[in-house]
C-alpha cells in the first residue's frame, strides 16, 4: 500500500481515498489478510481514533429548537472536548437521537424520544428517563441502554452486542434479527418477538405475545410471564443452573430481579428443524457469524 498523508487524503474523493489506501475489490478478495500486530504494544480500551473522555467531566445540552443533526453533532463536539457525561434535555420525541456513537460515554436523556434512538451504538452507557419510539438501539454493537418507561416496536432490532434494557413494556417484534447481546424487558413484549433471532439472549419479565421466537436460528429467550404462543421452530428448553445464575446476575444488575426469583422463567430456544445453513456457500455463512 502506498503511503499517503492525511493532507493528501483530505483533497481526494471517497473513491480516490479508497484506492489510495488499497481498498479495491480486487485487493480485498483474498481469503486471508496478513496484519502484523503486537498485542502488548500499547494498552488501549477504545478505538484509536476515539476521543479521550472523562466520565467525571459533565455537561448539559438542551434539544429545544435544535434539529437531530445539530444535537448529534454537538454530542460529538463535546466528546472531542473530553466530556464523558452528557445530559440531554427536552428531547420531546425527537428521532435518531445519539446515533452512531462509537466510543465510551455516559449519555443521559431526560425525557422521551422517537424512532431509532441511540442506534448503531458501540460503547456508551445510555440512560433515558422517559419512553422511546420504534427501533431503539437497533444495530447496537456494545454498551448499555436503560429505558425507564416503555419502548415501541422492533426494540433492539438486529443488535449484535451490549445490554438493552427497558423497565416498562415494549411493542412488537422485539429483538427482530437479534445477532447477539442481551435485551431485557421489565414488562410485556408484543407479537413476533425474537423473530429470526440468530444469537444472544432476550429476557422478558412479563408476558410475551403470539409467535414468540418465530423462525429463530439460535439464541435464547427467557420469559417470566405467559407466552401467548410460540412461533415456528421455537421450542421450550430446560432452564439450567448456568441460565439461572446468568439471569440472576443480569436482572439484579439492572434492578429487575423478580421477588420470586428466576426459577419460574420459561426458556425458549431454536428447534433447529428449519435450518438452511447447509445450503449456503462458505462465504455467505461467514457473513452470518
Amino acid at each position: 500500500m502506498a503511503s499517503v498523508s492525511d493532507a493528501e487524503l483530505k483533497n481526494m474523493t471517497q473513491d480516490e481515498r479508497a484506492r489510495a489506501l488499497g481498498m479495491t475489490t480486487e485487493q480485498l478478495t483474498g481469503k486471508q489478510l496478513y496484519v502484523e500486530f503486537d498485542p502488548d504494544a500499547e494498552e488501549r480500551f477504545t478505538y484509536p481514533w476515539a476521543p479521550e473522555v472523562d466520565f467525571n467531566k459533565r455537561t448539559e445540552l438542551d434539544c429545544d429548537g435544535k434539529t437531530t443533526t445539530e444535537v448529534n453533532s454537538s454530542i460529538r463536539d463535546l466528546m472531542a472536548k473530553g466530556y464523558g457525561t452528557i445530559v440531554l434535555h427536552n428531547p420531546r420525541g425527537m428521532h435518531s437521537l445519539g446515533v452512531g456513537i462509537l466510543s465510551k460515554l455516559n449519555l443521559i436523556i431526560e425525557g422521551s424520544t422517537g424512532y431509532f434512538t441511540v442506534g448503531l451504538l458501540d460503547g456508551p452507557n445510555v440512560r433515558i428517563t422517559g419512553r422511546v419510539g420504534w427501533s431503539c438501539g437497533e444495530n447496537m454493537m456494545s454498551g448499555t441502554i436503560m429505558i425507564e418507561k416503555n419502548a415501541g416496536s422492533t426494540f433492539g432490532a438486529a443488535i449484535r452486542g451490549g445490554d438493552l434494557v427497558c423497565r416498562g413494556s415494549v411493542g412488537s417484534r422485539t429483538g427482530i434479527d437479534q445477532k447477539g447481546g442481551t435485551i431485557i424487558v421489565g414488562g410485556d413484549t408484543g407479537a413476533l418477538s425474537g423473530f429470526m433471532m440468530q444469537r444472544g439472549r432476550m429476557v422478558v419479565c412479563g408476558n410475551a405475545g403470539k409467535n414468540l421466537g418465530d423462525s429463530m436460528y439460535d439464541g435464547t429467550i427467557f420469559v417470566g410471564g405467559d407466552i401467548k404462543s410460540l412461533g415456528v421452530d421455537a421450542v421450550e428448553a430446560e432452564l439450567s443452573d448456568l441460565d439461572k445464575a446468568w439471569l440472576t446476575r443480569k436482572l439484579t444488575q439492572y434492578g429487575l430481579m423478580p421477588d420470586k426469583g428466576v426459577d419460574h422463567f420459561t426458556k425458549v430456544v431454536a428447534g433447529k428443524q428449519l435450518w438452511n445453513y447447509d445450503n449456503l456457500e462458505p462465504s455467505e455463512k461467514k457473513l452470518i457469524l
Binding site: G93, M94, S172
Partner: peptide
C-alpha cells in the same frame, strides 16, 4: 404514529404506550 407529534402538544413528561 410518532411520539414527536404528541410531544408537540404535550411537552411535559407523560407516559405513553404502543
Amino acid at each position: 404514529s410518532e411520539e414527536v407529534a404528541i410531544r408537540a402538544i404535550l411537552p411535559e413528561e407523560i407516559d405513553t404506550t404502543d
